[in-house]
Amino acid sequence: MARRSREEPDSPRVRLSDGTLARVARSEFTSGWELLVDETPQSHVDLDDPTHLHFEYIARIGAVIDVLKPAGEPLTAVHLGGGALTVPRYIAVTRPDSRQQVIELEPGLWDLVRENLPLPRGAAIRVRIGDARAGVEKMPGGILGQVDLVVSDVFAGAQTPAHVTSVEFYTSVAKLLAADGVVLVNVADGPGLAYTRRQIATLRQVLPHVAVLAEAQVLKGRRFGNLVLAASRAPLPTDWLPRLLAAGPHPAKIATDREVNQLASGALPVTDADAVASPRPNASIFDR
């Protein structure tokens, strides 16, 4: 997780529908910009180099995207949760001619990003305003079964809303996927990984092949952080591992097969009837 950034009175900002404040500020630690919502860093964007994926969990998402198809081959992608569109920008640059749709709840947030962090020239990225789950359920019939990648990175402040964590939700998402299509879910969880375990069980009820990518200490349930869950009807490629282990300043790990079975052992799938939002991180998680 990135740290909380200091307030900048003159940074572009907008008040969102829930009363929280979103703003764009220069990154304190690297080149580029950050989108913050309620002072929680949501996205990092380097306008000069969209392949610069500063947040570690985003870099792991990028590593998966790199191996979904041969290098440079376009994808059909749906992104749930817009943020500053870091991942759509990455795909547009590394896989030209990709067709991408983004569903973002907050029109003011999209206006803020569009005006201050313009998209790469020629990027075929369509942004739809609305709720992520409702948007998935209303997708036109022609896209069903045609999507190579769905990225679910939906947050309200620092938590994932309950209604995008259930079997019913992932069943709708799975209808979009091509036979070898992949869903990537950003999960934020703390020690014990109780929330993650249930999300693994939930995904596996819909898509049988699941892998978990995270920094080693997060994957062991020793500290709060981001985990990326990858799920598909088809077996997931195992050649992700070397790049993941080499990327970033902290040891990265991918859990598959037996380790995923162990993580999900005893965990019950989440349904609409018992879904809850993801754990709220302590504010100190954003400090250096």
Rank of each mutant, 00 (worst) to 15 (best):
V270Y: 06
G62P: 01
P237G: 08
D18Y: 04
S265N: 14
G141K: 11
A25D: 11
F169W: 13
H250F: 14
A267F: 00
R198Y: 06
G192R: 00
G108E: 05
T86Y: 12
I125T: 15
S172W: 03
Y90N: 08
P50K: 06
E106W: 11
A123I: 12
D239P: 04
E137L: 14
E215A: 11
P249M: 07
P107A: 09
L75K: 09
A132K: 07
L263K: 01
F224L: 10
S98Y: 06
G181T: 13
I125W: 11
E106D: 09
F224R: 04
A162M: 08
V154K: 01
Y90M: 09
Y195E: 00
T76G: 08
V185P: 00
F29K: 15
R222Y: 06
A216G: 02
K69M: 01
V270E: 06
V147C: 02
D10M: 08
P74K: 11
L119P: 04
R198T: 01
F224Q: 03
G108H: 01
A179H: 09
S172K: 13
S11P: 03
T94S: 09
G190W: 00
G130A: 02
P9W: 02
D180K: 14
L75C: 10
A283M: 08
M139E: 11
R223I: 00
S98P: 05
R204T: 05
Y195K: 00
P279I: 01
R89T: 10
R121P: 04
V45H: 06
G192T: 00
N116Y: 09
E215P: 11
L193C: 04
P279N: 05
V182K: 02
Q262W: 07
A162D: 14
D287T: 15
D131E: 12
R197D: 01
V212L: 15
R15L: 13
L68V: 07
